[in-house]
Design a protein around this nucleic acid. Structure first.
Length: 591
RNA sequence: GCCCCCGUAGCUCAGGGGAUAGAGCAUCGGUUUCCUAAACCGAGGGUCACAGGUUCGAAUCCUGUCGGGGGUACCA
């Protein structure tokens, strides 16, 4: 390649044009660089391609390299090489996935629910996508700090304080503070006639004025309200705990808005002192210097500058976010900071990042990991926390219930066909039901491109057909079932794997898929797109289904082939288990 | 007004310079003496919103138009 290309700097670009084939008929990989190279060299693409093929060194990697079409070079890997590679990754606990040679430190901002309110489907995406990114990056060897930037300083506390002062049922509070606070929250909102649109700050009327006053007192340090806040917080966190537990999400830190509150005045002072912030109409704003906010500031001087201190002296989320950046950089010294937040906040993050760089944090990479809205069947974003929308916990219940129902149907069907199916304990069944149900919800969220909106359709996400978590879990259960049935010990296949034989197209296709795991993970991590992994899982599971149909394992024609196929089965199971695990989805031994 | 995202099969969506544009669902047909049929195999189904442009090559990049959604200084 270096010999052919006139411009050595472009060699990596050309090599980047070697990609998996779009169509398996054209081999495993295709190299597309002959066409542009021909242009530069003034030759015909077919000649260049032929020249490249002729110059390929002898190796055991490729079975063939052929020129096709206008100048594609189709590459087919040799069976021997594939077999050897599969055998070698089977002995690797990381399944052939190398750790990043340049590990970085990431801070990932995820979940960020408002405490004191019931967790709602709207919080699902940040939690699930963020958790998946934490797991993926960590698996690749990076240092990852997950931080749950709780909304724990807002109007909802004014609501609770007002409710506590005027509508408390003492006995209920002593018995179960979590439940009583939840009741008070709903009760006061109803008193204030906060509509379904969730905007409790905009509500009008005496009650709304009263709880806003309580919020303001809290913010200005009123001792009674601050004490109540301290009293409420543990109960509020307790409301969240079971949901995270069910979702299997653990977040390293939960430094919410309240944590940064004492730092906000200092942030504003510093920005003023450095001349970045300026007073305007009684408020303090961050004016848009040309170039600070690309694409808008220079063209449109009317782009509104973010406010960091309101005319009434209160701070805004921009102030909090800047304080957060300062704290995170000083505490964890990250290379990259990811914000897994709704796409509608794109402008906020654009200006926030620009101003953070201006403030001096220019050696940190900031990315807004935007995701689309969850839509109702009416195609409108689900935003309300009451008035008929689904609470997360009830959704998870529903999902698990359906998982259980599916198991029981399948159990009955197998029994009717005369299969030998064991009676499971209630706990074992519930484990399956939860893994399947909650896996289905997570997978539905992760399997589309994150920036797309998606319609929240319980029937669809809990469907057991098609590209769903269930399909992958089923493929895994089949892998395990073969080992149970054959009384085979998987450890041998992981310590001293047998020789791999590729005697059938399905074996080869499956083996090739298993080898792509590393490439897929690094792509998913590079673009922060978990759906690359679901796409891959789908390909693996489909390849396995083909193999399962076409290649008997336990009754293979020879002992060598049986051993080889057992290795493929075990490795498939491990890849599925690991890949699902990186998405926060569990597998079960049988289903 | 300005900014951002989106428009691909009946529906839900992948693909974001490379060959004849792919999946799932739905529809129609087939498969179970066989390691889990929560499975598999097959069929039909397309003006990649539209119009220009760049390119050897455009669903993909650029410009414009139309249509949908979102955002836009004292909520977060």
């Amino acid at each position: 390649m270096t010999a052919l290309a006139p411009d050595p700097a472009k060699v990596p670009d050309y090599l980047g044009m070697v990609k998996p084939s779009g169509d398996p008929k054209n081999g495993d990989y295709q190299a597309n660089f002959a066409m542009p190279l021909a242009k530069v060299l003034g030759k015909k693409p077919l000649e260049v391609a032929a020249e490249v093929v002729a110059k390929l060194p002898k190796n055991d990697l490729l079975e063939s390299a052929t020129v096709a079409g206008p100048g594609f070079i189709n590459l087919k890997l040799s069976d021997g090489w594939i077999a050897k590679q599969v055998q070698s990754i089977a002995a690797d606990t990381r399944l052939g996935v190398a750790k990043s040679p340049q590990p970085k430190t990431f801070v990932i901002d995820l979940s960020g629910p408002n405490v004191a309110k019931p967790l709602h489907v709207g919080h699902l995406r940040s939690t699930i996508i963020g958790d998946a990114l934490v797991r993926i990056l960590r698996f690749l060897g990076h240092t990852v700090i997950g931080d749950n930037h709780l909304g724990d300083w807002g109007t909802q506390f004014g609501i609770l304080i007002y409710g506590y002062k005027h509508h408390l049922e003492k006995a209920a509070f002593e018995k179960d503070p979590v439940r009583e606070l939840a009741r008070l929250y709903v009760h006061v909102r109803n008193l204030a006639k906060v509509a379904k649109d969730d905007d409790e700050d905009a509500a009008k009327g005496d009650v709304a004025d009263a709880y806003r006053a309580e919020t303001a007192k809290l913010h200005t340090g009123d001792p009674e309200n601050v004490a109540l806040w301290h009293q409420f917080m543990p109960a509020c966190l307790e409301m969240l705990r079971p949901i995270y537990e069910r979702l299997d999400v653990k977040i390293d830190h939960a430094l919410g808005e309240s944590f940064y509150n004492p730092m906000l005045a200092g942030v504003v002072d510093d920005l003023l002192k450095k001349g970045i912030a300026a007073e305007k109409n009684g408020a303090v704003v961050l004016p848009n210097a040309a170039g600070v906010i690309k694409e808008t500031a220079e063209r449109d001087e009317n782009e509104p500058p973010p406010i960091i201190r309101k005319r009434d002296g209160a701070f805004t989320y921009t102030t909090t976010d800047l304080a957060t950046i300062k704290y995170r950089v000083e505490t964890w010294k990250p290379d990259v900071m990811l914000y897994v937040v709704d796409a509608r906040q794109a402008l906020h993050f654009k200006t926030l990042f620009a101003n953070a760089r201006r403030w001096g944090y220019s050696n940190v990479e900031f990315h807004h990991i935007a995701f689309g809205s969850i839509l109702g069947k009416d195609k409108k974003p689900i935003r309300t926390r009451d008035g008929g929308t689904v609470e997360l916990s009830s959704l998870l219940d529903e999902a698990a219930e359906l998982g259980l129902k599916k198991y029981e149907e399948s159990y009955a069907e197998r029994k009717a066909h005369g299969h030998d199916v064991p009676e499971l304990t209630h706990d074992a069944k519930m484990e399956i039901a939860n893994a399947v149900g909650i896996g289905a919800v997570k997978y539905a969220d992760l399997s589309g491109n994150r920036v797309s909106d998606y319609v929240f359709d319980t029937d669809k996400m809990l469907s057991t057909e098609g590209n769903t978590a269930t399909y992958m879990q089923y493929a895994y259960a089949r892998c395990r079932s073969i080992f149970r049935k054959g009384n085979a010990d998987e450890t041998a296949f992981r310590t001293s794997p047998p020789k791999v034989l590729l005697t059938h197209p399905s074996e080869r296709a499956l083996a090739l898929q298993l080898l792509k795991f590393e490439e897929v993970l690094s792509n998913a991590a590079a673009e922060y797109l978990p759906h690359y992994i679901t796409q891959y899982l789908w390909d693996v599971a489909k390849a396995f289904s083909g193999f399962f149909e076409g290649c008997p394992v336990l009754t293979a024609p020879s002992e060598e082939l049986k051993q080889s196929r057992l290795l493929l089965v075990d490795l498939t199971g491990r890849v599925i288990h690991t890949a699902l695990g990186l998405l926060g989805i569990r597998t079960v031994e049988r289903m």
